[in-house]
Design a protein around this nucleic acid. Sequence first.
DNA 1: GCTGAAAGACTCGAGCG
DNA 2: CGCTCGAGTCTTTCAGC
Lengths: 156, 156
Amino acid sequence: MKSKSKPIIIDGIDKKILRALTADARTPILEIARHVGISGAAIHQRLRKLEKSKLISGSQFIIDPKVLGYSTMTFVGIYLEKAADNEDVIRALKKVPEVLECHYTTGDWNIFIKMLAYNNNHLMLLLNNKIQTIAGVLRTESIISLDQQINRQIKI
Amino acid sequence: MKSKSKPIIIDGIDKKILRALTADARTPILEIARHVGISGAAIHQRLRKLEKSKLISGSQFIIDPKVLGYSTMTFVGIYLEKAADNEDVIRALKKVPEVLECHYTTGDWNIFIKMLAYNNNHLMLLLNNKIQTIAGVLRTESIISLDQQINRQIKI
DNA sequence: GCTGAAAGACTCGAGCG
DNA sequence: CGCTCGAGTCTTTCAGC
């Protein structure tokens, strides 16, 4: 079987690099270099290879929404009038900054979103004024996350 | 009203720092410094302040699971025999690396998780052999994400 | 795919206003 | 307290193997 694009081959050194940098994107590269026994420049070249392969899609500082006062995380299932309205609804949802994720899903709901709010009252305002007013949205069902116990990336 | 811990005051410079580093955690600090007109050391001190306030909870390289072959993302609602089993179930879920998020939620389900699988067959194996076999788990309902159109952090 | 070296950037402590 | 300056360390690039 032929694969269209080069398969990514990551060896033990790549894994160590990825484990260090997925835990802390500003881990000194020379520290990793000393740990695995090759030069900093070599680590740097491997990183460029991993970025080119798209395995690494970027790096981010992580902001804790709770410190900004967002204490309510909610999953919202959205029913559309017609599934074909999808694209316009997505466009409208992108304009609501509290919407963090948006999925097109199987099951009863057409669209499934993850959303932040300051509190339950704010959540109600967002649903009433920002989500349910989008053309094509029929109704919504909310599932409030009372506590998030796991939050991680896939293991390397 | 008195607040127990010092409220975080972020000015325009802090916002520019955060916007740069949430987009790319390895943005050169001196580049930000030149852009806002203060020294690199001053940026560094502000970063330490933001970390100390917990507004920044860390930094990560982002791995794209698709490049590793994980083409199926699924949300799974879990019914427990008794809500009190929660803690043990969470402990078991933490041992399943494909589980990326886990929430304790309102609504019919007790627990709600986000999970990766290579394909639908792998998803079935994970549900049958890893999730539904956990003591206390009654049954599950799966919602497959056919496409994720939004994935972002809260805006600063 | 690696090394070594050089230029630029990061980080931290000391000290100024 | 928030800033700048400077010294030591780290990052990044490039030539060479």
